[in-house]
Design a protein around this nucleic acid. Structure first.
Lengths: 173, 173
DNA sequence: TGCTGCATGTAAACAGTTACATGATTAG
DNA sequence: CTAATCATGTAACTGTTTACATGCAGCA
């Protein structure tokens, strides 16, 4: 029984504030993307779907002349979110192409793998920086509801990234 | 540019040996599934596709009276695999429902999250055991081509699982 | 004038999963 | 005899991505 998970990150973000599709995209891509990604194009259709189902209500807002469609969660939406939250999280399908390539590495291809290691490390360091940025923001005086749990989520990411960096440094050569 | 990745794990497994669809399924579900999963139903159609493309050749084999369709990689298949191997691994779409729920936890829902932690821990311990089993097999005297790289892949998994277990133990309560 | 960022969307294609279906063989 | 395992498959669905498309506003 598969079911569109995109719904829940949207409903989750709408718990504490009304947001436009664009704002949701922004939040996802620079704060939750490290543990939950969505492609840009998936936001708008899902918002429309949620609106049709009565999970969110939309109303146009204007900043100057620029129109924005702002979405607010409804009581029904809150219930659907709570119902999802209670369900045990599904184990996520692991598909790590980097490890698949490592697994299939041979004496003949180990130099190619070595270059994948290099790239992997660079990407990890970039991600690490990004996460540290978020950490700074989160540690700052900003008011964020349920900061503690968001911090825990972040720390989990930081720990895995740091482990992976150490592992890469030990295993490449 | 998305492209069926299922092809490559199949081609990879066929590098050193000819296998039937069923055997491929078995290998995936009890040895690579920890970093690369495939649903059972995806194997057979992909094998047929690969056969149509000339990447694999199939020939019926009989064990007693039982028919088995055994697949062998072709030169073309080896080239396609090598070409894939050289390409930089794509960053995998992270979608960790457990973390998404942690991120959205509030004072009101923290008990529910606690029960998710419990289940998560149990699942981690099960996975840890399974990985240790594989480790034992791998450390044994069995002849496995390019053992070293397979061992590295495994150790990576073990390290992350162990980290996650420690993290869970620190963060639940 | 042209570029960047804000803002919203659609159509088509594709990958992957679920659920179902079938039958042979072997071990207890 | 019957349950488990070996063995192979398909149809339908659905979630997701890719690529494309549009237009306004502000700034240099």
């Amino acid at each position: 029984m598969k079911e569109k998970k995109t719904r829940y990150i949207i409903l989750g973000l709408l718990q504490n504030q009304s947001l436009s599709g664009y704002e949701i995209r922004e939040i996802i891509s620079n704060s939750t993307a490290y543990f939950w990604q969505e492609s840009d194009a998936s936001i708008y259709p899902t918002l429309r779907l949620l609106a049709e189902e009565g999970m969110v209500a939309s109303s146009p807002q204007f900043v100057g002349k620029r129109r924005k469609e702002v979405f607010t969660i409804t009581e029904q939406g809150r219930n659907a979110f709570a119902e999802w939250f209670r369900r045990p999280p599904e184990v996520d399908a692991r598909r790590q192409e980097f490890l698949l390539k490592l697994f299939f590495t041979t004496e003949e291809t180990k130099d190619e793998m070595e270059s994948h290691f290099k790239l992997h490390l660079r990407q990890l360091l970039t991600t690490l920086e990004a996460l540290k940025e978020i950490e700074k923001r989160l540690q700052g005086p900003v008011e964020i509801p349920n900061k503690g749990f968001k911090m825990k989520t972040l720390k989990n990411g930081l720990a895995h990234i740091q482990l992976e960096i150490d592992w890469v440094r030990k295993n490449r050569k």
